[in-house]
Design a protein around this nucleic acid. Structure first.
Length: 418
RNA sequence: GUGGGUGUAGCUCAGUUGGCAGAGCACCGGGUUGUGGCCCCGGUUGUCGAGGGUUCAAUCCCCUUCACUCACCCCA
């Protein structure tokens, strides 16, 4: 048997209703905050991701689905959405009329990692991005919106983690100091951290190995080395969050895996997903638009892990959709009549089903019951002879005759009003 | 990429120190020749994940492989 690709998954009916509910919740809330939906391609030039995410990141180094198409263009299945949104902003000069543009998008991303709980090779994200806005109030508003989104979905056991990564003015000095510190303690670091020390020193602070944790306990923190502007920005973000009654904790070790982040970064964590504690993450990327060849415009955004979210949203009150009418038939003549009627009734917005096999009445009643039919129209030889069908209310068991004359219109009226 | 656990009916899972493959639920039929849910009776579940090896005999033991799963790594 041909199975689906490892790390990919089918979302089957039953689960799809939950997904639709989450999508609607996001769209409606984000639109209330002035975000508009944007849809960007799943395939982009590899160059776009290499330049935005960073050549030395794990994502670009070993996790992307990259291949040559038939004309030898190097293309990649997107591992994240921000780069494409920024590209669209630049390419279509969306900044020309108003540099401030707010977008959201929902769709699949691809990363070739080893699958585990809450981690798939094709996974879905909901992204929200504000391009062209520098104010720290925007940072706070975005986090507020994210928290409200989770509240609407009744997700419990979540916390907001906040950090700042500084800007090109203050980060280099800090990095130099961090490097000096790491060189001093290098004998105590694990093999992974030896590697990180060169490529992404910030990550060393986030290592889970006990020896490393102890070694970096009093390492310098970015938060203590901010320039005046970054410091002020971060303080305003915190002050604004407090005004909005958003609980958060400063997490000096919160580092993001993508190179483009600057200043504010944040993550929503949960204890419900095992090792994959991040349900959503985001931050500022004030230099990215410019680095991709656009105007000098700051930006901020976040991504929500859709699959992870779906796993922790309490799905108890999602039930299979009921149908309004089931037509049970006996004999060819009845089936033919029911066939025409059912099509005509379904078109008018009434969920209608019938059975096309030659089941007995008992079997058809059973099927109607399983489908959650509110009414069953019974149509056998007797009814054909009398030109009157029988309509059974499945809850009250009450049965009423319905003459063939004008039956479709009568059923439409009756079922719509009940 | 590395390590652990698990693959038996549609689903949840038993099982045999190697000897014809099981239960519950679901499904189908009957009790009710044309009326669902509850009840009673009966029936079908299957490459025992795939390939190879050992053996008179393998679902069981050995090897390989694939998938799922959890963790590392990384991230949403």
């Amino acid at each position: 048997m041909i199975q689906l690709i490892r790390g990919f998954k089918d979302v089957l009916p039953g689960e799809v209703e939950l997904w639709q509910m989450i999508e609607k919740t996001a769209a409606s809330l984000f639109e209330d905050f002035g975000f508009r939906e944007i849809r960007v391609p799943i395939l982009e030039h590899t160059e776009l991701f290499a330049r935005s995410i960073g050549k030395d990141t794990d994502i670009v180094e070993k996790e992307m689905y990259t291949f040559e198409d038939s004309k030898s263009d190097l293309v990649t299945l997107r591992p994240e959405a921000t780069a494409s949104i920024v590209r669209a902003y630049i390419q279509h000069r969306l900044y020309a009329v108003d540099p401030v543009q707010k977008f959201y998008t929902i769709g699949p991303m691809f990363r070739r990692e080893r699958p585990q709980k809450g981690r798939y090779r094709q996974f879905y994200q909901i992204n929200a991005e504000v391009l062209g806005a520098e104010s720290p109030l925007v940072d706070a508003q975005l986090i507020f919106m994210l928290v409200e989104f989770l509240r609407r979905l009744r997700v419990s056991d979540t916390s907001v983690h906040l950090n700042t990564l500084g800007c090109p003015k203050c980060r280099p000095a800090f990095q130099k100091e961090l490097h000096r510190f790491l060189s001093k303690i290098k004998t105590q670091l694990c093999a992974d951290c030896e590697r990180r020390k060169v490529k992404n020193p910030l990550r060393v602070l986030d290592c889970k190995v006990l020896a490393c944790r102890e070694a970096v306990a009093d390492a310098p923190a970015m938060i203590d080395h901010l320039c005046e502007e970054c410091k002020g920005h971060f303080e305003t973000v915190q002050k604004s969050l407090k005004k909005l009654d958003i609980q958060f904790e400063i997490d000096k070790r919160l580092v993001r895996g993508l190179d483009y982040y600057t200043r504010t970064t944040f993550e929503i964590q949960t204890g419900l997903l095992g090792a994959q504690s991040a349900v959503a993450g985001g931050g500022r990327y004030d230099r990215l638009i410019e680095e991709l060849g656009g105007p000098v415009q700051p930006a901020i955004g976040f991504a929500i892990g859709f699959d992870r979210l779906a796993e922790i949203v309490s799905a108890n009150n999602i039930s299979a959709p009921e149908i309004d009418l089931f037509i049970a038939t006996l004999g060819e003549q009845a089936k033919t009549a029911a066939f025409e009627w059912s099509c005509s009734i379904a078109v008018s917005g009434i969920k209608t089903e019938m059975d096309f096999s030659d089941k007995g009445l008992k079997g058809q009643m059973k099927k109607a019951d399983r489908l959650g039919a509110r009414y069953v129209l019974i149509l056998g030889d007797k009814e054909i002879g009398e030109e009157t069908a029988v309509l059974r209310n499945m809850t009250t068991k009450e049965q009423t005759p319905v003459p063939f004359e004008g039956i479709v219109e009568n059923l439409k009226i009756k079922l719509k009003n009940s």
